[in-house]
Every structure is written in structure tokens, then in C-alpha cells.
Amino acid sequence: MAELFWEQAPESYSRWLPPEVSADRLLRWGFVEDGTHLFWLMTGEDSDTWPIADLYEDGGPFTIHKEGFAAYVQRWCAPTPGPTTEPIQFIHWRKYGHLMEQGLNPAS
């Protein structure tokens, strides 16, 4: 994921980053089906202190979240009020592709 992002970043994503953040400081660790890329922002030698950042693929806002990885994922997975009560699912992209090839709905 990180290598692909770095290969594409100069032409595709760098223009959406604030001037103080270069693509080589972003370690991509996830992608959400709504088009959001998820990163660690490498701010120093101690990876335990790297903040989480996200960027919408269409050039939406680049956001830095200071709360840390565990708190970010916990907040992201917390139930929110709304029209759906579907549980959040985490499926590896290879397993997702395999299920789709078999004609199976990965959400089922």
C-alpha cells in the first residue's frame, strides 16, 4: 500500500497536501470504500507518536488526527446514530477480491 501510494503521490496526491507535509512522510496503512486513504504521518523516530492522517481520493481535505491509532480506530468503529445498523467489517483486500470473484457478497 505504501509503495503504491508513493509511486502515485507526486502526480496524483501531492497537490492536496499542505506545504509542510510531503508524500514521503506518509505511510499508507488503509483505504476505505468511500475513497479515504489512511496514513501514519511520520513525524520522528518514535512510531508510537505518529499521528493518523486521512485524505479523500477526490482531493477532499487532508486531516491530521492527534488522538493516536487506537483511539482513532475506536472512534471510527463506534456506533453512530443513523439510518443503518449494519456492523462495521474489516476484510483484507485479497479476501474481499476472492469473495467477489466467487460471486459472494463480502458483507454477508
Score class of each variant (00 low, 15 high):
Met1Leu: 06
Glu3Thr: 13
Glu3Val: 12
Glu3Arg: 15
Phe5Gln: 09
Phe5His: 11
Glu7His: 14
Gln8Cys: 08
Gln8Leu: 06
Ala9Pro: 10
Tyr13Val: 02
Tyr13Lys: 10
Tyr13Ile: 10
Trp16Ile: 00
Leu17Glu: 03
Leu17Cys: 02
Glu20Met: 03
Glu20Pro: 01
Val21Met: 03
Val21Pro: 01
Arg25Asn: 05
Arg25Glu: 10
Leu26Glu: 01
Trp29Asn: 07
Trp29Phe: 14
Gly30Ala: 11
Phe31Ser: 15
Val32Pro: 00
Asp34Tyr: 14
Leu38Thr: 02
Phe39Ala: 09
Thr43Glu: 10
Asp46Val: 09
Ser47Asn: 15
Ser47Met: 14
Asp48Arg: 15
Thr49His: 09
Trp50Lys: 02
Trp50Ser: 03
Trp50Cys: 05
Trp50Arg: 04
Pro51Glu: 11
Asp54Pro: 00
Asp54Ala: 00
Glu57Pro: 03
Asp58Glu: 14
Gly59Arg: 11
Gly60Leu: 06
Pro61Ile: 00
His65Ser: 08
Glu67Leu: 12
Gly68Lys: 10
Ala70Gly: 03
Ala70Cys: 09
Ala71Thr: 10
Tyr72Cys: 00
Cys77Asp: 07
Ala78Leu: 06
Ala78Asp: 08
Pro81Phe: 02
Gly82Pro: 12
Gly82Trp: 04
Thr84Leu: 13
Pro87Glu: 07
Pro87Lys: 08
Pro87Gly: 00
Ile88Gly: 03
Ile88Lys: 13
Phe90Glu: 08
Ile91Glu: 03
Ile91Thr: 12
His92Gln: 14
His92Leu: 11
Lys95Cys: 03
Gly97Ile: 03
His98Ala: 11
Glu101Met: 13
Asn105Arg: 12
Asn105Gln: 07
Ala107Phe: 15
